[in-house]
Design a protein around this nucleic acid. Sequence first.
DNA 1: CAGCGGAAGTTATACGTAAAACGTCTCTGA
DNA 2: TCAGAGACGTTTTACGTATAACTTCCGCTG
Lengths: 336, 336
Amino acid sequence: MARGSTRPTSRDVAQAAGVSQAAVSLVLGDKWRGRVSEPTAQRVRAAASELGYRPNLAARNLRLGRTRTVLLVVPALTTEFFAEVYTGAARVAAQHGFGVVLYPSPEGVGPARDPFASAQAALDGVIASSMAADALTAIRGDQLPLVMLDSDPEGSLGAATVNLDIADGIRQVTEHLLALGHRSFLHLAADIPSWTFEVRARELASRLDAAPGTQLRTIRAPISIEGALRATEAALAAPGPRPTALVCDDDKLAAGAYKAIRRAGLRVPDDLSVTGLDDLGLATAIDPELTTVRLDAEAFGERGMRALLAVLEGRPPEEGDLPVSLVVRGSTAPPR
Amino acid sequence: MARGSTRPTSRDVAQAAGVSQAAVSLVLGDKWRGRVSEPTAQRVRAAASELGYRPNLAARNLRLGRTRTVLLVVPALTTEFFAEVYTGAARVAAQHGFGVVLYPSPEGVGPARDPFASAQAALDGVIASSMAADALTAIRGDQLPLVMLDSDPEGSLGAATVNLDIADGIRQVTEHLLALGHRSFLHLAADIPSWTFEVRARELASRLDAAPGTQLRTIRAPISIEGALRATEAALAAPGPRPTALVCDDDKLAAGAYKAIRRAGLRVPDDLSVTGLDDLGLATAIDPELTTVRLDAEAFGERGMRALLAVLEGRPPEEGDLPVSLVVRGSTAPPR
DNA sequence: CAGCGGAAGTTATACGTAAAACGTCTCTGA
DNA sequence: TCAGAGACGTTTTACGTATAACTTCCGCTG
């Protein structure tokens, strides 16, 4: 890779400007007031930009003992949700001079890779989704400042948590469907052991318990269109009265359910009302557009990063769950 | 953040094992054969795992002058395409002890942020999509080894390029539609100046030029469901004979077109055949399932990373474009 | 005119690691 | 018997930066 000359160091800049390396560091680090004269500072800046100087981050990190880099651990990037979480986190990070490295926990259950080794970066802290199951133990073992996303506030052993108010979302969904007159519910649940999905199930069950004359059945599927299609198909083929409302743990499951419903010769929402959760782009791509719970994934990422910054500075992170809101579209209607 | 004791260094491990720091480095760096006895190596390893030692990457990077970290510059993560590119690149990277940092070029045309500063990491190389327009000039200015994705091989000034064979994909689409009997085409093009979209337009035009009795009209839209919806709606409302085949630059555009077509009271594929490009999850979520060109985004990312590794090692990167394949589903049929 | 204080620097040092260069000690073969 | 070659380490150094500690010069005050 013989790139002619190697990268210039602060010493090269110093030489070009006729000052010491320390002076360069002071000027470029913006700590020169009262230590270096204005004309000298000018010369240093000119020399730096002339040579195209970029500080060596490895050296700086070593010297300072911190890296201004954090790790974001997510379950996967197969849906845009965590991509948006990343975007939000990265935006806030950049505003504070931080970088974000991503660790999408691998889907296949291979030999559990080490998120830290694979990030290959020196880290100041970690933001981790509680859904990234296989990475969590390694993360817990490490001593880095940690913020958990969508995690049981009780079970987080002191780590800061940032949560979406999923329970309230399910409440809104349930009330919407009850108000439309639905009484027979089917819950298409994600086949993943994670707190955020437990919340959905618990909230839905308790809301319906409180509503007289309702019934609830639950089926499970992996979060994929194919998986949801199969699970829903099986449920629709089952004997007994057909439910009139299908509450899905997320939009992708709802999209799969749509297909099963069509294949069964039924229609949304006439024969079956369907709701999702996430409000991905997918929600408005399918027909009819999906009634779903809007989660602000970017705000979620921003909040996560802000919480981590707070932890790093010894401040208490913001309290309270992030609000969510029901978006009523064409997939829900009164039962026939 | 007073974490009781600070992280152990190699010197701590050395002390615990009763050897010198150099011995620790040799053992843990797997360079100890013939230099350190087996029992001593054992002691070192035991001490290291006892203390939970993790090498300080900043120090290692500084010492070695490389970081085993590369930057992946992508236009955005709003579709799963580049998320998969990342996944593929990160997988190959991990196999070689590399990490991948992501830089999604910001959508809003703000003050062009510096991808290198915002990555906040010392880098060994860069993989950049030619679609990440606003980051490209900064990247070109830097002297890092570079691999371009989806970029004009002629105009890349010596940087290695890795491309999908998009032209062949368009060829397959065109031949498929021509074989079905279509003669009147509408091209829903992405409203982004990028080589990969130019290729689509050029190939489509030249294929149809070669087919007697065909005609082609082109409309442009930003890559979003909303944008495609509006552009297609306008085109369908235009006077004159309606085209029978709609070739879209990607799946998302096709999803938007579906909605416009439905709103116009028409049906896919009876009134209008539609094709996409990407084969995102979206393609099978919509109804009817979309006939599209399958791009293997993960393989694309893998190939990009392998090319960068080759460049870093002074080897020539693999030649040849990545193959793509038409997936015929329910959105294409003979014209009425 | 001693001496003090601020401006404008410079010199020196530490961060933690990898590895080159340098010691010992023991064993072996001629 | 003695040179030479391992085996098994250790000592030392350099990577590039940030900053504490130090120097020098000058203007001013008492």
